[in-house]
Design a protein around this nucleic acid. Structure first.
Lengths: 168, 168
DNA sequence: TGCAAATTTCATTATTTTTTGAAATGAATG
DNA sequence: CATTCATTTCAAAAAATAATGAAATTTGCA
């Protein structure tokens, strides 16, 4: 006998169509953020699911491996894009989507972008040193370096502030 | 006899070190934007070059193929991140970096992000239709869809406005 | 504690993306 | 207008990234 889904689920039902659109939506959104398809699939599924879902249900509903599911859930947890909720009498973790996108974006900026800006600062320090030690110091280089500095500074201020503008 | 570079270029000279840092800087920046390494390399090279460079010089200086160079230059042109300048007596194109990052970012948002937001709008229309036609219309779905709508709307307003905040 | 279910890890495989380079095309010069 | 130099195109190769699945680990329960 084939395994049964815990909840009845009709192929091509309106609910299923909405779910598919949701998955597709977030696959593309996560794609823009450079995150793998599986991450978008999982989030899209959870976002339109009224009940929280376990990893095995997620994997089988999306037809992805449990390895992918595990990795994707980890990524989403680290972005604070999902939450695991306790369900009495079931020892599996139950996941649901954190629907405050604000949190997702701010984690993304903090985890994925800011580290780059930090290392950019180091690089600029190195470049300034090279330029100072160089006898035939070119104005051209000074000006370019100054622009890079301004770019990273603006980025470091603007990006974290950005999430404050989001109200959802 | 090996081919000579048109300009003398000392390995490990301060200028070369700065150039390498610039290339590395932009490889990473373009990486964040999802653009290939070669695009970052080319822009980084041009950004710290006092003179404009031809495609063949770019390819040989970066040790990339002319195919890559051609593709990368095309991408950078479409982002308005570089400019080609006329040099009398030379039939090759000469490229230099557009140093107004503002322009690069606004082209990027226009070309790479906004189309996604457009298609997201279509998707949301589809989802609204499904929801309307569905008899046992769930509040839960309404609420989720409303949030998606707000997200795309905020994105469509915020992202183009963003470039206005950049002053470099 | 010992067992079984749930989850994670990670080497391997599959997929996607990028680069290469040679052929085709385009453009300027004599 | 033919030739040569410059650039683009694109099929194939290489590299990077993501997914798989089985073994290892962890976890909760009896």
């Amino acid at each position: 006998m084939p395994p049964l889904n815990t909840d009845s689920f009709v192929k091509d039902s309106p609910d299923r169509l909405l779910e598919l659109e949701s998955i597709d939506f977030f696959v593309r959104l996560m794609g823009i953020l450079g995150l793998p398809r599986s991450v978008g699939e999982i989030y899209g599924l959870l976002y339109f699911s009224e009940i929280s879902l376990t990893m095995d249900v997620i994997a089988s509903r999306l037809e992805i491996s449990i390895g992918s599911a595990s990795q994707g859930l980890r990524t989403l947890k680290s972005l604070k894009a999902i939450r695991s909720t306790y369900v009495p009498g079931d020892r599996r973790d139950h996941y649901s989507a954190e629907t405050e996108f604000k949190r997702l974006f701010s984690s993304f900026i903090k985890d994925e972008i800011m580290p780059h800006l930090e290392s950019a600062k180091d690089r600029i320090h190195r470049m300034e040193k090279i330029l100072q030690q160089n006898k035939n110091n070119k104005d051209f280089h000074q000006i370019r370096l100054e622009k890079l500095k301004k770019l990273t500074k603006t980025g470091s201020r603007l990006l974290p502030a950005l999430t404050g503008l989001l109200k959802f």
